[in-house]
């Protein structure tokens, strides 16, 4: 398959279960090594780089299954992400998370994702939806150039889903956002481009309007949904 994503794109990747959406994410983020082909970010070949290097290039992701630091507070989760971006985690003798600028950034992030109330609670004690929000907050904390969200609203209530949608819509235009999602309403409202995967191939690539009308999409995606 071949896929190009322009800067500032709002791309939704959809497809039935097992179509290879998460595998695509893992390949793009460097968690899986491709057996062939090439992956480029801003024209640069990153095929051989690992997840760490790609994160540093501005690729940030959320996981389909919550991948959080469960035994510490929400504040510590966010602080680590902020420290990582600012390259301040390699400090041995002080706690840079106490610096006012970093503390402020953590608070801001928490406000944006409705986490301010639970900042001092251990993540493991939070409700599922709240943890899902933290999952996205951690991806955002790196202020990425490319934000990749793997089913961010999976298992969330309708209100929580609306909140996430509102947040994603507010993201700066320069940020590229790639989204895997099952909620088609959300996809059509958010995306400017829709890619449909099936059995690891791109079977459709176009605007949401075209996707709505496309018989291929109807057959493969809606068909399997029904």
């Amino acid at each position: 398959m071949s896929l190009q994503v322009a800067r500032g794109e709002r791309l939704a990747v959809i497809g039935p279960n097992g179509a290879g959406k998460t595998t695509l994410f893992n390949l793009l983020c460097g968690e899986l090594r491709p057996s062939g082909g090439m992956i480029r970010i801003q024209g640069r070949d990153v095929t051989r780089e690992d997840a760490v290097a790609r994160a540093r290039r501005g690729l940030s992701r959320s996981f389909q299954q919550n991948t959080l630091f469960d035994e510490v507070r929400v504040r510590d989760n966010l602080a680590l992400a902020v420290l990582a971006r600012r390259r301040r985690s390699w400090v041995f003798w002080r706690d840079p998370a106490r610096d006012p600028d970093i503390a402020r950034e953590v608070e801001d992030l928490a406000h944006r994702l409705a986490l301010a109330e639970v900042l001092d609670q251990p993540v493991g004690t939070l409700a599922y939806g709240t943890r899902r929000q933290l999952e996205i907050a951690l991806a955002l904390a790196r202020e990425p150039e490319v934000l990749m969200l793997d089913e961010p609203t999976a298992g969330m209530s309708p209100e929580e889903t609306r909140a996430i949608l509102a947040l994603v819509k507010q993201l700066p235009e320069s940020m590229t956002v790639v989204l895997i999602e099952h909620d088609l309403d959300l996809v059509f409202e958010f995306a400017r481009r829709v890619v449909v995967l099936d059995y690891g191939r791109v079977v459709f690539d176009g605007t949401p309007e075209e996707a709505r009308r496309s018989p291929v999409v109807r057959e493969i995606y809606m068909g399997s949904e029904a």
Binding site: V52, A84, R85, W90, V91, F92, A97, R142
Partner: peptide, 28 residues
């Protein structure tokens, strides 16, 4: 205790809890 309460210590704790996320945040 002092060492663990530093940026370094925070990272160690994070590695113990979820190494995958640590990598995704760009920390080796």
């Amino acid at each position: 205790g002092r060492l663990l309460a530093s940026g370094f210590g925070r990272t160690l704790v994070a590695i113990g809890q979820n190494e995958r996320r640590v990598r995704a945040l760009g920390i080796a």
